[in-house]
Each structure stands twice: as structure tokens, then as C-alpha cells.
């Protein structure tokens, strides 16, 4: 028997495919304009970035301030390979190169800093982000400060959509497993976690490397969606943008990251014509969230179909509703009888 073939999984499949169908339909009939499609592509890439950072920040509790650098590695790997080899093959090869380089880079920062308890990673990744930017700025193959342009636009909304699905499957499966629980326990209490036999350094490194690799995928999609990349796109400011999405949505909640990327993306888009006011509204929105929902929009809530144990549960719903309606009617009838009496 296939154990993964459960009702919740089926629900998710229906949900994912249904949403995709709806998106395509809305594009076909022209409800989603070309400008909105570009906005959606951007939002989609931000979803992947936020979910991948959430794996590091919200699950293993490690503070990274250089997430955009991994996106940059992916973007340049993708951009360079795509320019040599336009098409899906080029994109796949670029993605592979990006994954490999970002994994190696992540290992190099993580292994020495994550041995220590405390926020050394934040400082190291801050420096790392700058180093990557400077390296890209000074290399020939990356075309220095001018960046790469005319990158073949291979990625489209479909590719981005299914990369999001893939990212979510990877991160959520990881979260709901023994390695994921080990990471969460480190965030909860590192000393207790270690005392329970969990090699904390190893799991912090695993979460960090996995997060970095997924961010590089987002970079590849970015390069192959927007034609142009420059070193400044992947600097500190972008790392902060990603961080804001994660904190806004709720640390540890992947649902939160998706919703926050959507909400902030739409706010950003609607205010595009008011560049000055935009920053104010954006800042106010974040302050409001922090005041009224300090744990983020979603806290640590996760959208889940797990409560649906069997088809019986769905079939039982109408009966349940019928009972509720009858109960309400009965109460009304009682009331009227009392009033009559």
C-alpha cells in the first residue's frame, strides 16, 4: 500500500492543481493582466525565498542576514548558463550549478559558525552577503557592476508555480519528520536539545544548507524571468526584504510566509505609483503587525487537511450541517412557543 496516498495528500493535490487551473483560466480570459503576471512572478519568487529562509529562521532558529547572497549565486549561475545555452536544458543546468555552489558556500559559512551557540551566524552571513556582492562585482564572467542583461526568459508562471509547490513539499516534509523536529527543538531550547542526544551543530548546518539551496533556485527563476540581474539586487536590502516577509507571516509558519509574500507583494504593487508613500505604508503595515500580532500574521499556524481522516468525514459534513440547522430551527420554534404562551 502506498502510505503517502492519504486523504490530506489528495486534498493538497486537488488544491494545488485547482489553484493552478484557476490561475491559467484567469490569465486566459484576461482578468490577470500582463502587469499582474509580472507581479505574480515576483511574488512567487519571494514565496520561495521566504519559505527557504523560514526553514533556517523559523524552524532551526538560526539568524541569517545574507539570504539574498544565495539567491544571487543562483541568479548568476542561471544567468550565465542560460546565456550560453538558452532553453530549459540551460535553466536546469544553471539550477544544478546554483544548487551546488550555494550548498558549498553555505557549508563553508555554517560549519565554523554553527558550532557556537548564539548569533554568530548573523554576523557571518552579514559579511558573507557583502563578500558575494564584491566577488560578483569584480568577476569578468558576471560582467561586473553592469550585471548581466538579455538573459533568455525561459521561466514562466507555470515553472515558478511548480517550483513553489516543490519547495513547499520539501520544506513541509522536512518540518514534519525527525530531522525537522530535531531542528525545531534546537530553536526551542538548545541546551535541552543537546541533552536529548541531538547533534545540534549537524542539524543547524542541514537546515542552513537546505535553505541556501532553495534560495538559489529562486535566484535561477529570477534571472530567467526578468532578463537583467545586477550585483546590487542581491545585497543586504534584499536580505532584509526576505526577512521582513518571514517575520510578517510568522516564524515557523510556511502558510504565513506564503500569505505574507502575497499580501506584501500586492501592497507593494498597488502603491507603485506613489514611491514615497509606499515606504511609509509598508513600514506602518509591519509596525501594526508587530504590535497586534507579535508572532506574525499566522503565528505558527499551518494550513492542514490532516483532520480529514477518511472520506467518511467529508460525507458526514452534510449530515452535521443538517443537524445544526435542525437544532437552530428547534430553538426558534421553542422560543416562539414560549412567546405564544
Amino acid at each position: 500500500m502506498k502510505r503517502w496516498l492519504t486523504l490530506p495528500t489528495l486534498c493538497w493535490c486537488v488544491f494545488a492543481i485547482g489553484l493552478y487551473g484557476l490561475l491559467q483560466l484567469l490569465i486566459e480570459i484576461g482578468v490577470i493582466s500582463v502587469v499582474w503576471q509580472i507581479t505574480l512572478a515576483n511574488i512567487g519568487i519571494n514565496v520561495i525565498l521566504a519559505v527557504s529562509l523560514n526553514l533556517i529562521l523559523g524552524i532551526s532558529g538560526q539568524f541569517s542576514l545574507g539570504h539574498a547572497a544565495f539567491m544571487g549565486i543562483g541568479a548568476y549561475a542561471g544567468g550565465i548558463v542560460l546565456k550560453m545555452l538558452p532553453g530549459y536544458t540551460g535553466m536546469l543546468l544553471g539550477a544544478l550549478a546554483g544548487l551546488l555552489i550555494s550548498a558549498l558556500a553555505a557549508l563553508v559559512i555554517a560549519v565554523p559558525t554553527l558550532r557556537l551557540r548564539g548569533d554568530y551566524l548573523a554576523i557571518a552571513t552579514l559579511g558573507f552577503g557583502e563578500i558575494i556582492r564584491i566577488i560578483i562585482n569584480n568577476m569578468k564572467i558576471t560582467n561586473g557592476a553592469a550585471g548581466l542583461s538579455n538573459i533568455p526568459a525561459v521561466a514562466n508562471l507555470t515553472v515558478i508555480y511548480f517550483t513553489i509547490v516543490l519547495t513547499l513539499i520539501i520544506v513541509c516534509n522536512f518540518k514534519n519528520s525527525a530531522p525537522g523536529r530535531a531542528c525545531i527543538s534546537i530553536k526551542e531550547d538548545e541546551i535541552a536539545s543537546e541533552a536529548m542526544g541531538i547533534p545540534t551543530t549537524r542539524y543547524k548546518v542541514i537546515a542552513f544548507v537546505l535553505g541556501a539551496m532553495l534560495a538559489s533556485l529562486a535566484g535561477v527563476l529570477y534571472a530567467s524571468s526578468f532578463y537583467v540581474i545586477k550585483p546590487t539586487y542581491f545585497a543586504f536590502a534584499q536580505s532584509i526584504n526576505i526577512l521582513v516577509i518571514v517575520v510578517f507571516g510568522g516564524m515557523g509558519s510556511m502558510t504565513g510566509s506564503v500569505v505574507a509574500a502575497l499580501v506584501l507583494g500586492v501592497i507593494n504593487y498597488l502603491l507603485q505609483s506613489l514611491p514615497n508613500e509606499r515606504m511609509i505604508v509598508y513600514a506602518v503595515a509591519i509596525i501594526l503587525i508587530m504590535v497586534f500580532r507579535p508572532k506574525g500574521l499566522m503565528g505558527n499556524f499551518e494550513l492542514s487537511f490532516a483532520r480529514l481522516k477518511s472520506l467518511q468525514d467529508i460525507k458526514a459534513l452534510p449530515a452535521l450541517w443538517k443537524d445544526k440547522i435542525l437544532a437552530v430551527l428547534a430553538r426558534l420554534k421553542n422560543k416562539r412557543q414560549k412567546e405564544d404562551a
Binding site: 503517502w4 516534509n173 522536512f174 525527525a178 523536529r181 536529548m196
Partner: peptide
């Protein structure tokens, strides 16, 4: 469950790919 970590016989790959060992 977290404290049972040392005798769990599956790793990151099995959890992401949901291999039989995971279940």
C-alpha cells in the same frame, strides 16, 4: 519523540521523499 532521535533509522532524504523507512 524528539528525545528518541538517536534510534531513528531514517534521514533527511527519506523524510523529504517520504520513503517507506519514514512511515
Amino acid at each position: 519523540r524528539i528525545a528518541m532521535h538517536k534510534d531513528i533509522k531514517y534521514g533527511v532524504f527519506s523524510s523529504i521523499l517520504r520513503l517507506p523507512a519514514y512511515y
